[in-house]
Design a binder for these strands. Structure first.
Lengths: 213, 213, 213, 213
DNA sequence: TATGAATGAGCATTCATTCAT
DNA sequence: CATGAATGAATGCTCATTCAT
C-alpha cells in the first residue's frame, strides 16, 4: 500500500468518524437544530477540522445521504446480479433489500428523502452532486433490471421497467415519510413496518398482471 | 351578522391576503430563502402585522398547508358522499380529486408533504396542530370510506381500508416529492403527470384482487 | 416638511450617529482591529441595527471617507468659486482648504487615503462607489479650475491643470501618510504641520514658472 | 566559509524562495486575500515551514518590503556616492533610481507604502522593525546628501535637505498610491508613468530656486 | 389595529498559528 | 529541519420576533 493510498484511507476514516458523530447528534437533537459546533464537539474535534473534511455543512449532511445510497446500491446490485434467483424471488429480494436499508439507518434515510427534493442538492459541489446522482441512477437501474427480467418472463405487466423502478422508490419514500407523520401526529411508532409490507404486497399485486398466484 | 362575527370575518380575510402573498413569494424565491420581511413586503404590510395574524413563521407556513388540506378534504368528502357513483367510479373520482389537488397548488402541496413529517409540526400551537391533524384524519377517512365500499362490493381486495388510504396518501406524496428530484437531478419537468397516472393504475390493479377487468 | 422627508432626515441622523461612534472606536482601537460589535456597543445599538443603515462593514467605513470627501469638496468649490480672489490668492485658499480638511479629521483622512487605493473600493455598492468617485472627480476638478485660472493669468506654468490637481492630491496624501510613518518610526508627532507647509511651498514654486516673486 | 555561515546562507536562500513565492501569490490574488497556505503551496512547502523562517504573516509581508527597501537603498547610495556627477546630474540620477525601484516591483512597493504608515509596523519583531527603520533612514539620508550637495552648489534652494528628502519620498508614495486609485476608479492604467515624470519635473522646478535653466 | 425600527442570540466559516511526528 | 493535520478564537451577518408609538 503506497503512502498516498494510506493517507487517503486515513482521510476516509476521519470522514467516517465525523459522519458518525454527526448522525449521533442528529438523532439526539433533530436534524433542523444541529450546528457545526455540535457536531465538532460530538466528534471531539474543532469546528475548523470539520471543514478540512467537508466543504460545508450542507456537504457534510449530504455525505450522510451518500453513504446510505451506497449501501442501497450495493444491496440492489447484489439482488439484481444473483443468478440463482428467478423473477419472483428477485422481487422478494428487492423488497428485502429496501427494508434492510430502512432498518440500517432510518433517520439518515429520511434525510435522504428530504434531500432528494430540496434546493440544497443544487448547491452541492459538482462532484458530490454527481456522485449522488450516479448512485440514484445506478440504484434505480438495478431495480429496473429486476423488473425487466420479470417482464421478459411474463411474471409482471408490460410496463416500462424504469417507470416501475421510479414508482417503487417513490412508494418507499412516501411510506417512510408518512410513517414519520404517524409518529408525530398519532404517536404511532408501529405504523411503518406493517405499512411497508402492505405497500409491497399491493405494489406486487399491481404489477403482476394476470399471473397472480 | 353580529359585530363579533364581522370582525372575525375581516380577520380571516386578512389572513387569506397574507397567505396569498406568502405563496407568491415562495414561488418566486423558493421556500428556503423566504423571510418574514419578504412576505410582509409582498402583502404590503409591516412585519409586525404578520404577527397579529400568525403566531410565528412556522404557523404561517403551516397555515398554507392547512388551506390545501381543506381543499383536499372537500374534494374527497364530495367523492365519498356522491350517491350516484358505484365503487369503480368512486375510485376514479378519488384519483381525479388527488390530481386536482396537485394541480391546484403544487408548491404548497410539496410544502405540506415536507411539513407532515417534520419537527415543525410538533411545535405548532395546539389549535393549529389539532386542525391539521383533524383534516388529515378526515381526508384519510374519506378515502377509507371509498375503499370500504369497494371492499364490501367485492371490487377490491379485503384489506383494511385505513391501510389502503394511508398507502395511497404515501404513494401520492412519494410521487410528488420524487418528481421534484427528477426536476433537480434530471432536469425532467414532465415526469410527474405520467408518473401519477402510472402510480394510480398500478395501485388500482394492486387492490382489485380477482375482479380486474 | 413631508413625512417622507422627515423620515429620511431621521435616518440620516442615525447614520451620522453610527459613523460618529465608529470614528470614536477607530480612534481608540485603531482601524484594523475594530469589529462591528465594537461599533455597535459604542453606538449603544445592536449589531443588527448597524446593518439597517449600512450594507456591510466596508460600506460603513467607506461612508466615513465619503463624509470627509464631501467636506473637502465644499471647501474646494468654495475657493474655486470665490470671485474676489485673484489667482495667487486662490492658490493660498487651496492650500488652506486642504490643511483644513486634514485638521477636520486626520484619522478619517488617512482612512480615505488608504481606501482610495484599495480593493475594497471595487466591492462597494455601485451607488456608494459612484458617490465616492463623483466627489473625487468634483474635488479634483475644482482644483483644476484654480490651476486653469492661474495658467490663463500666466501665474503658473503651462501644464495640464488636471495633471497639477492630481499631483497636488498625491502630494497631500503622500505627506499625510508619510507623517504617519514618522509618528510610528521616529515618534515624531510634529512632522506633519511643517511638512505640509514645505510641500506646498515647493509645489507652488514648482508650478510658478518664470513668475516667481 | 564556516559551517555556521553556510547554514546561515542556506537559511537566507530559503527565505528568498518563500518571499518570491509570496510575491507571485500576491500578484495573482491581490494582497488582501492571500493566506499563509496559499504562500506555502506556491513555495511547495508546508505552512509550518513558513514559520521556521518567518515569525508571522506580518513579518513575512514586511520582509518583502525590506527587500525593496534594500534595493532602493543601494540605488540611492550609488547615486549619492558617484563622484563623477555634478549636482544636476545627481538629481537626474535620483529620479532614475526612484523610477527604477518602482519598475522593479510595483506591487511590493505599494505594499511598502501601505506598511510604512500602518499599525502592523509597530508589532513587528524589534529586529525587523529596526532594519526597516534603518533602511528608511539610510535611504532618506542618501537623498539628503544629494540635496545637500545641490544646496551647497547653489543649484537648489536653501531648504533643509532632510525636509526635501522627506518631501520627495512622500511625493513618490503619493503618486504611486494615487495611481492605484486611477486604476480602480478610472480604469486608467497609464496614469503613473506620465505622472511620475510630471511630479519630478515640478518638484525639481520647485527646489531649484533662481537657478532654473 | 398597524407600524417598522430595533433587537440580539445564533451560526457558518476562516485562517494564522502550533506541535506531535 | 520539515511536515500538515488540527486548532479554536474570532467575526460579519441574518432574521424571526418584539414593542413603543
Amino acid at each position: 500500500m503506497g503512502i498516498q493510498e494510506r493517507k487517503e484511507r486515513e482521510r476516509d476514516r476521519r470522514r467516517q468518524q465525523i459522519m458518525i458523530a454527526a448522525k449521533r447528534v442528529f438523532y439526539s437533537k433533530g436534524f433542523a437544530k444541529v450546528t457545526m459546533e455540535d457536531i465538532a464537539k460530538e466528534a471531539e474535534l474543532s469546528p475548523g477540522t470539520l471543514y478540512l473534511y467537508f466543504k460545508s455543512k450542507d456537504e457534510l449532511c449530504a455525505s450522510l445521504s451518500l453513504r446510505i445510497l451506497q449501501y442501497l446500491n450495493i444491496k440492489l446490485r447484489h439482488v439484481s446480479a444473483e443468478k440463482e434467483l428467478d423473477g419472483q424471488q428477485k422481487l422478494e429480494g428487492l423488497k428485502k433489500a429496501i427494508i434492510d436499508v430502512y432498518e440500517f439507518d432510518p433517520l439518515i434515510l429520511i434525510n435522504l428523502f428530504r434531500l432528494q427534493s430540496s434546493e440544497i442538492l443544487k448547491n452541492l459541489s459538482p462532484q458530490l452532486f454527481a456522485d449522488i446522482k450516479e448512485l440514484f441512477s445506478s440504484s434505480l437501474s438495478a431495480m429496473s433490471d429486476i423488473f425487466k427480467e420479470g417482464i421478459n418472463n411474463g411474471v409482471i405487466i408490460d410496463k416500462k421497467p424504469e417507470a416501475l423502478a421510479d414508482l417503487l422508490w417513490a412508494l418507499f419514500s412516501g411510506i417512510v415519510l408518512w410513517g414519520e407523520s404517524k409518529k408525530i401526529m398519532d404517536n404511532n411508532e408501529d405504523y411503518l413496518k406493517q405499512a411497508l409490507e402492505t405497500a409491497f404486497e399491493v405494489f406486487l399485486l399491481g404489477i403482476k398482471g394476470e399471473n397472480r398466484t
